[in-house]
């Protein structure tokens, strides 16, 4: 009975009561121990000896790769937002060719593996266009890939602005351009910020695939370190932590934004 009470006071959230720091820490600690136990059991079966020293010598490779991943992701994000915006608008175009093209573009890009897109773009399109800089090619590929998703995010944002608001804008005597400028876009921007931040997190992780066209980003760097040291886990564990360092703040900011821009329509 006493044990039961202790369990419930430590493990169960009571309605309407804030969870105390002590209870939080206890639960987090239990989780850490559980995972630690799980992993140490796994490693004990593997009988793997960690040799961090050999990887430490290559730390600059990892740091360079880490920075390259950030740069690639940011450049791709900017370009993909621009492209995504264009394709979102193009889907509303009254010129059918433009509308169908953007529809097809979005479906094809979202429906095929990024790996195939990277290979196709780099070895077929970029090659034919005489584009030799693989970093520029990489940014272009990631932008094309992410823009299809961003176009859908923006389109959903535009559709989310109710038809009654468009009607009201019309009754006030706003032109179409004014309606988009003053009514639709301000609401789209605040509405799409959270999913857009999520998209940035995906972009960061997806950019790891650029290593197949020998772009020296984070994942490529880890692969190289592994190839030089034969210390597989010591190369890839920092990789996972590095991606977490980038994506955790984004998911935190996303949650903040979601709360901040929540209003009813």
């Amino acid at each position: 009975m006493k044990l039961n009470k202790m369990f419930s006071s430590l493990m169960i959230e009571k309605k309407g009561e804030p969870v105390s720091w002590f209870v939080r820490l206890t639960n987090i600690l239990i989780l850490v121990l559980l995972f630690y136990g799980l992993f140490s059991f796994g490693f004990s079966r593997l009988s793997y000896t960690f040799r961090w020293g050999s990887v430490w010598k290559y730390r600059n490779n990892l740091i360079d790769g880490f920075i390259m991943t950030i740069l690639l992701s940011l450049a791709s994000l900017v370009l993909s937002v621009l492209l995504g915006f264009l394709f979102a608008i193009a889907q509303k175009s009254r010129i059918l060719l433009i509308r169908y093209f953007s529809r097809a573009y979005i479906e094809v890009i979202r429906g095929t593996p990024l790996l195939v897109q990277i290979l196709m773009f780099f070895y077929v399109i970029a090659n034919a266009a005489g584009l030799n800089n693989r970093y520029i090619a990489g940014v272009l590929i990631m932008s094309i890939f992410a823009s299809a998703y961003i176009a859908e995010i923006i389109r959903a944002g535009i559709d989310g602005v109710g038809s009654t608001q468009l009607e009201t804008a019309r009754s006030i005597g706003l032109t179409k351009q004014q309606t988009y400028r003053h009514i639709v876009f301000p609401q789209v921007i605040t509405g799409v910020l959270p999913p857009m931040a999520g998209q940035l997190a995906s972009l960061i992780k997806d950019s790891s695939l650029l290593s197949i066209i020998a772009i020296k980003e984070f994942t490529m760097a880890a692969r190289e370190v592994n190839a030089n040291t034969f210390s597989t886990l010591e190369s890839y564990i920092p990789l996972a932590i590095g991606y977490l360092i980038l994506t955790l703040p984004i998911s935190y900011v996303t949650k903040k934004l979601e709360r901040r821009y929540f209003y009813e329509t």
């Binding site: 009654t164 608001q165 009607e167 009201t168 019309r170 009754s171 006030i172 005597g173 706003l174 032109t175 003053h182 009514i183 301000p186 609401q187 605040t190 209003y263 009813e264 329509t265």
Partner: peptide, 29 residues
């Protein structure tokens, strides 16, 4: 469109723009 700028319309569901405060709603047109 020009005619609509000369007349006013009030709807059943108010139709204020949710991203603007009351003052901005009146200023917009």
């Amino acid at each position: 469109l020009t005619y609509r700028r000369d007349v006013g319309m009030v709807y059943q569901a108010y139709n204020l723009f949710p991203h603007l405060d009351a003052l901005e709603n009146i200023m917009l047109p």
